[in-house]
């Protein structure tokens, strides 16, 4: 990070689609023309503050390294990566469940009874933690996208994936058989930037929380 510029990392994809409209009309609104281009560094309505558009799985790394001072990312991604960064607020939006999903008719008990359970997932850490809590063992099949296909094509018995409305699951004949956890958007900060330059970073963080205040849990906002 140079002394003159501040970068905020925003997620691409589902969470980004929810975030961008919420920022419209705020000091951190993203430049509409730049958004329509292929640019990944987007000016905001605040001079000297730009946004980086990043894949969720890469975003925490940019923040932890101090390249971006702040970022917004799903708690599911944070839990998988376990990077050294600060998590200033639960922003509330982008809420979804991390669920075990299997073909309709296949119950949790039936999955438990399998001598060699295979689970496909983008979330191996959360899945391993759940298996440990449940006293189960399974072979994990790591995937990075379209996990819904795995049970249909015999790659796995079930999947562990994020579920928001359940529409994608239903379209593939899958149902939720267990909820492993919940996820929502979190405001994260680079430890170094936040602790060494609070005068620069905290107003920006507070501005972001205020801009997204309709969905921030009040008790959380108080702590920041």
């Amino acid at each position: 990070m140079t002394p003159a510029s501040l970068l905020i990392a925003f997620p691409k994809g589902r969470l980004g689609d929810e975030l961008v409209p919420k920022l419209a009309g705020t000091p951190l609104a993203l430049d509409a023309a730049a958004l329509k281009s292929r640019a990944l560094r987007i000016p905001t309505a605040t001079p000297g503050v730009a946004a980086l558009l990043l894949k969720g799985a890469d975003l925490p790394r940019y923040v932890a390294a101090g390249v971006a001072s702040l970022g917004i990312v799903g708690s599911d991604t944070l839990d998988e990566l376990d990077m050294d960064l600060l998590e200033l607020a639960d922003l509330g939006f982008g809420a979804c469940r991390l669920s075990l999903c299997a073909r309709e008719g296949l119950t949790l008990e039936a999955l438990r009874a399998k001598p060699h359970l295979r689970l496909a997932t983008k979330f191996p850490k959360a899945t391993e933690a759940w298996l440990s809590r449940e006293g189960l063992t399974a072979e994990l099949v790591p995937l990075s996208s379209s996990a819904e296909l795995a049970p249909l094509l015999g790659l796995a018995d079930a999947i562990v994936d994020l579920v928001q409305t359940g529409g994608t699951l239903r379209a593939h004949g899958l149902v939720e058989t267990a909820v492993l956890g919940h996820s929502s958007a979190r405001l994260v900060a680079a430890r170094g930037a936040y602790l060494s330059e609070p005068g620069r970073i905290r107003p920006l963080a507070e501005g972001l929380i205020q801009s997204l205040s309709s969905s921030v849990k009040p008790a959380v906002a108080k702590g920041v």
Partner: peptide
């Protein structure tokens, strides 16, 4: 005790 410099990423 922790010593920082403004803008430093690590103590």
């Amino acid at each position: 005790l922790r010593l920082w410099a403004p803008g430093a990423q690590q103590e």
